[in-house]
Nucleic acid binder design. Structure first.
Lengths: 205, 205
DNA sequence: TTGTTTATACCAACTAGTTTGTTTGTTTTT
DNA sequence: AAAAACAAACAAACTAGTTGGTATAAACAA
């Protein structure tokens, strides 16, 4: 055997993610990444054949974490399956809690970063982002349809678009957070989503 | 005098905005802009001394339009000053109507585009974006405080963050719209904001 | 009306530096 | 011994920006 390359690879991923969230993908040169990681060009291209291979690895890692959060929240609310509204509210609350711990604004979302220069990426990456967004939609839709078995809506709304609202609020909060320096902004915005759910649903008579 | 340069300048602004919304600012080279406008490098640098001068002109034009929409909505709801909740709801409805007319997803928001590679821009531009976002916050806050004179809230919420929600939903919708091809997505998301306002406020007894 | 002037608007070619990626070989680590 | 990383040079394409000159059209003079 030989020495372990994983720390180097992980470092490239971490530093380039941070750089891309501040400078964009096109605005992040490989030389910048080398400077930040302290490695050489040879090492970089040993781990990633091209810059777009790095782009793909980054978005896949990001999506893994993202979906991981979603699945963890599903698990941690599974005990409330009998009370679908409580489950939905706790599901949102878990993300409020997660975003409340921050001492500075969130670093940003790589989906939004890529989408803001979407032509720089191939169809495979664009479809990958689309599919993770649709996974969020489908997951929330399931939670919402469970609620509708026992609850009516005070105002009749389109369920898929209501399912999208959590993604919209996350993405929007991240954008606004990049402008205003308020670490609790995302948590507060998610609280509005929770409020909306609370107000919208009323037990069937 | 000599020939009129305004059409050329306007064309540069229009084409570069479109390019930047798809490729990002760093991802949009001046050569790309020349290709799209059909002008030469000399003409470009005659109108904009540097690329960052273009960046500033673009964001100023975009903000002018953005604030124009806001002020128009304020004017068109001014007749409801005596009924603050109706005014607020109509204010949102005007933007729902605006976004309902679309036959394809909105082209995107230049604030979000710039913020996603925020380090590429100087403090002046970043402050400029911040101030337009804060103008939206302050404007909505005024509308909301008027409502609170006659209405209580079913759930007690932080007013500045409630004011931010319209910006958050706009920005988030634009992000998600870049992934999913649904022209009515933004209108539907704004409808949730309107619903939330409707559900949240209850006349003082 | 006609020719000349003049500032603006624009063009074509060039420059200096940066970009991604390659190559060749050496050194370190396990 | 083999993987992982370094070092340094190189190439081809692309980058923002410059230069010197030309076309255009209004203003002015004859």
């Amino acid at each position: 055997m030989a020495r372990d390359g994983k720390p180097t690879r992980d470092n490239i991923l971490a530093q380039s993610r941070a750089l891309i969230l501040e400078n964009g993908f096109s605005g992040t040169s490989i030389d910048h990444i080398l400077e930040r990681t302290g490695i050489t060009k040879g090492a970089f291209f040993y781990h990633f054949k091209t810059k777009s291979v790095l782009a793909k690895a980054l978005i896949e890692e990001f999506a893994r974490e993202d979906i991981g959060h979603m699945e963890r929240a599903l698990k941690e609310t599974a005990h409330l399956k009998g009370d679908a509204l409580s489950r939905l509210l706790l599901f949102v609350q878990l993300f409020i809690d997660m975003m409340s711990d921050l001492t500075e604004p969130p670093p940003g979302c790589l989906y939004a970063s890529y989408l803001s220069e979407t032509n720089q990426f191939d169809q495979e990456i664009r479809d990958f982002i689309l599919n993770t967004i649709l996974l969020w939609r489908n997951t929330l839709e399931l939670l919402l349809r469970d609620v509708l078995k026992e609850y009516d809506m005070r105002i009749d709304v389109d369920i898929p678009s209501l399912a999208d609202l959590i993604t919209v609020i996350f993405e929007g909060s991240y954008v606004v957070s990049k402008a205003v320096n308020e670490p609790d902004l995302t948590a507060k915005q998610l609280q509005h989503l929770k409020n909306y759910f609370q107000l919208l649903f009323i037990p069937k008579k």
